[in-house]
Design a protein around this nucleic acid. Sequence first.
RNA 1: GGAUCUUUGGCAGAGUUGGUCGAAUGCACCGGUCUUGAAAACCGGCGAGGGUUAUACCUCCCAGAGUUCGAAUCUCUGAGGGUCCA
Length: 416
Amino acid sequence: MIDLKLLQKDFDVMSAKLMRKGVDNTLIEALKKKNEELKAAKTAYESLQADQNAMSKEFGQLMREKKDVTELKAKVDANKINITQALETQRVAQETLESIAMSIPNIPDDDVPDGADENDNIEIKKVLTPREFSFTPKEHWELAEQNGWIDFERGVKLATSRFSVSFGMGAKLERALINFMLNFNAKRGFEEVSVPALVNRGALEGTGQLPKFEDDLYKVEGQELFLIPTAEVPVTNLYQDEILAADELPKKMTAYTSCFRKEAGAAGRDTRGMIRQHQFHKVELVALAKPDESDKIFEEMVACASDLLTALELPHRLVTLCTGDLGFGAAKTIDLEVWLPGQATYREISSVSNTRDFQARRAKIRFKDGKENTLVHTLNGSSLAVGRTLVAIMENNQQEDGSITIPEVLKPYLGM
RNA sequence: GGAUCUUUGGCAGAGUUGGUCGAAUGCACCGGUCUUGAAAACCGGCGAGGGUUAUACCUCCCAGAGUUCGAAUCUCUGAGGGUCCA
């Protein structure tokens, strides 16, 4: 959630920043107005309540002295009607304000480029040069089927479209990649955690998936539980509603989980292969940091993901997302895109974001900053999407006969 | 699934005939005195959110609803934990 106090104080600056992200100005105006209304309603209610409390105290006094209370009771009763009304006004104002505020995205950092969509993202740099093929490289689904690594039909048989099954070396490679990534991240100071794949509404509100993006989440019938769309949700919310000691920060964590997404808005996109699945494996990085160190941690996380790709000998590039392509909670995001020879294009394989205090404000994650309690900054990034990494290995390491060479760093994990 | 007990500040733990209770006490933590330094001892501070220039003031004792002039304390519902029975 954005900082309403700041909005109130620096309305012009804040609204200009939000408009860069495409937030409608009337919505921002409404938010400011509602915030003022709530303040007024609160003040009114609180002063009535103060009267009530004072009278109650007096009431007790009179009772003890065995004096007559009928007159006071009449006054109190009259006041009560006003309180009930004032409370209702306040409740409505609160609800309206929250429903608007919760649906407003984070403010982009000043150095995030303006832009409408992914075409306006800005490339920062390329790492490793894509290899020259002496033959026409195949797409990964062809290679996957030819090698017997992935079975798309049986995935559909078991569940529905956008599910697949890995066999043999395909399955082993997934496991090897997960272990390799977790170990790699651990060496960079990220502590491994293992978390639930189902979370409640509070957790999803904390990281911003709810209330706005419920359509893309799988919900357990009859329960307020959802399958996680990313490990970012459980890991970030680990410290929900807590006040951390300053010396506990930064908290750097890494977790492997399956992720589940309905892909509601992606009909027709990447229907073939395993680029976009309803269930996929991902190793995630999450960090909680002091505000003044979050930029540094952000760079560390980008470097970690990029170095991981380099270690796997996968050519990739780093891209700064423009305002239009930035996610709901992110103040800044750098995507890592891996080269896919079969498609002859770079495709997203990791996304590292700094949400600043946006999630922390929702999730109430703070730290003791001397005498003050201050919101932490939360950061998250994939390192990496396992399925897409497997795709990249298949396409980049394919030979003319369709066989695939295994990256050196994975061999120890495969008993090779 | 049935019965019963329980849920308080970072932790432990008082507080149930409703009224100076946002809440005793201990530990932890922070500051100070003492000490060459540390420990011990002693003194002081120490829950969160809102509000105010600062006070006042409001809210929060698992969550929600209710009774009452007034609830951490009473009633109901729900959730978590313990014990017993199945």
